[in-house]
């Protein structure tokens, strides 16, 4: 059985059919791509997976358990981490604090521990700090730990968002256009980084991206979404040669 199942899911806003009968089956430890023209409903699928929109019909299951009706933070605690297309960092917090905030639900010191700064508080705080620093090192931004996140250059903000999502220790990582706005060098660097993280941590990654070079290079399986409907799924080769995909991107040959 698949690890994340989106079963015949439809989402409608009044008459607008944002997603129609979308079925995804994600296996653990594989890097998936989700592509499609603008407005195809890719980010909407992310929003359904993370509980922001409840699906109109159909079901979303993580490890056999339905996520429909769960609150976004509950779904996050179950191990779905995500980044945003338009970066949403905690700008006034430092880079390190941004990552540390992701450890909220997995740490346990109580109010009294904080107020009296007990041993438990200090051990846990040091632990969270060390783990966060490690994530920053993975992303190569550890030297910026004490800088306010809002002051980072754009590319580093993208990296920080991924580091923060990893702080949740997710089983499934949703990346919404991680390479948007990056220059070719940065994109190449990020591509390798995503690949490395996915292999090292053995997590499932679902990635939305318009940079086809990136997608074709690292995604093991690609879903193509057009106007809210899945039109094709398969490896890079399959997708590149699919008639409907070519039509969607380039138009019909008349």
């Amino acid at each position: 059985m698949a690890f994340l199942e989106v079963d015949n899911m439809s989402l409608e806003f009044g008459g607008v059919k944002a997603c129609q009968n979308v079925t995804l089956k994600l296996e653990p430890g594989i890097l998936y791509g989700l592509i499609g023209p603008n407005g195809a409903g890719k980010s909407t699928i992310f929003n359904v997976l993370t509980g922001i929109y409840p699906p109109t019909r159909g079901d979303v299951k993580l490890g056999g358990e339905s996520l429909v009706g769960k609150k976004p933070f509950e779904i996050a605690q179950k191990g779905i981490g995500r980044t945003f297309q338009n970066i949403r960092l905690f700008k006034e917090l430092t880079v390190l604090e941004n990552v540390m905030s992701a450890f909220y639900s997995s740490s346990h010191s109580s109010m009294l521990d904080m107020v009296f700064e007990t041993g438990k508080f200090h051990t846990e705080e040091a632990d969270v700090r060390a783990k966060s620093m490690e994530l920053l090192k993975v992303m190569g931004i550890e030297d910026l730990a004490e800088v306010p996140a809002g002051g980072l250059p754009y590319g580093k903000q993208r990296k920080l968002e991924i580091a923060r999502a990893l702080g949740l220790n997710p089983k499934l990582l949703l990346l919404d256009e991680p390479a948007a706005g990056l220059n070719p060098t940065e994109t190449r660097e990020l591509t390798d980084l995503i690949r490395k993280i996915q292999k090292d941590r053995n997590i499932t990654v679902l990635l939305i991206e318009h940079d086809m070079g990136l997608v074709m290079k690292i995604c093991e399986k690609i879903y193509v979404l057009v106007q809210g409907q899945l039109v094709c799924e398969g490896t890079a080769d399959v997708v590149q040669n699919d008639k409907r995909v070519i039509e969607a991107y380039l138009g019909v040959d008349e």
Binding site: T50, P72, F84, L89, L93, E97, S101, Y104, L168
Partner: peptide
């Protein structure tokens, strides 16, 4: 940290497992 996160961006805080 959770409070500041909510002030800065409630949606992102939600996605970090903060209620």
């Amino acid at each position: 940290r959770a409070m500041l996160a909510i002030k800065e961006n409630e949606m992102a805080a939600n996605m970090m497992g903060i209620n």
